[in-house]
Amino acid sequence: MYHYVRDLSRSRYPEINALTIDEFKYQLDHLAAEYSFITVDELQSALYHGTDLPNNPVLLTFDDGFIDHYHTVYPILKQRGIQGAFFPSAEPIENDIVLDVHKIHTILAQRETDKQLVDDVFDCLEHYQPQFDLDTPEQYYTELAEEGRWDPKEIVFVKRLLQHVLPEKPRELVVDDLFDQYVDVDEQTLSQEWYMTKNQLRVMANNGMHIGSHTANHYWLDTLSLQDAVHEIEQSLSFLEDINGTTDDWTMCYPYGGYDDTTLELLEEYDCNLGFTTSPRRADTETDSPLELPRLDTNDLPQA
């Protein structure tokens, strides 16, 4: 599971939590020596028809539709004859917005200290607390701040609070206030720098890459009403139809890894073939459901 892959020295935000190009190539070299790269079609065939896979098969997935994937990742994969499975969210590509999750990443990249960021979040919470009847900042911090797999407790608090714990409207307001405070470009400019275009996605699809769904707005699917979840799926399918020319054998990558039984029922109703989670382990084609496939993170692989 990959996200940002870029030349950080030439990035507008060099502190973004990204994999460098050399680190990416190092991991590809490691995987090529130890594993056999497979395609989405080969994985589907193995899961649904019992077709044999090569020894130690590995599939590369890339989330969020970053421009990195077109300018950096795609040429490297094409040169090496490797298929990548790419999962862009539709809304930022269609309408030049920046997803809240990426606003948060940019805010994190621009922070001077973890403490200062937490203090600024507290200030925002105190400002909106009367309007939305929110808990106190201290209550949120006590509930959410704990050491994470990759992040200290202060950053886990910020991510959890701003990704899904706050109700939608105050969450959007707090994220936008922090974005305006920390980020020195407007949202449309950053969106156009951050994400691929439809034409770039079509080029990749026409040259052997797989383009799947990452919903429209990158919401936690397990927090949505049935109506909103249907809207997210249908909007992303319309987007995929425009890119791929078909939605046959389409695949889903769950934003944040969030899904529930209702999500799975909807995906079966809409004939989704594969669903990729963020559960950090190797997949087992004999026991794992095709709609609940785990993925290792790039941080789980050897680092250069």
Rank of each mutant, 00 (worst) to 15 (best):
L267Q: 02
L264G: 02
D68Y: 14
F157Y: 12
D120F: 04
S236D: 10
G245Q: 05
M1K: 12
T223W: 05
E147G: 03
H49F: 06
D177L: 09
E269H: 15
N244T: 00
Q139R: 15
D260Q: 06
E187T: 11
D248C: 03
W194N: 00
Y35N: 14
K78Q: 06
N217M: 02
T106I: 12
L267K: 07
D176Q: 04
S45T: 11
P54G: 14
H49C: 14
C124T: 08
E112T: 00
Q200W: 05
E91F: 07
G245H: 13
E112M: 01
V203H: 13
P255K: 03
G258C: 10
P57Q: 14
C124H: 10
E112C: 02
D248T: 12
K78I: 04
L301Q: 02
N199F: 09
P170I: 13
N299K: 12
D119H: 13
T251A: 09
A85E: 11
V5A: 12
E172D: 07
L117I: 08
A216T: 08
C272A: 15
M204C: 00
L190Q: 08
Q110K: 13
E154H: 14
A32L: 09
L264N: 09
W220E: 05
L240F: 06
L28M: 06
G257R: 10
R80M: 03
R10H: 09
T298G: 11
P14V: 04
E34F: 10
V230W: 00
H105G: 06
Y35F: 15
A283W: 08
E168H: 06
I107H: 09
I233Q: 10
E147H: 15
T263E: 03
L178A: 11
T247F: 11
T136H: 11
D300F: 03
V175A: 05
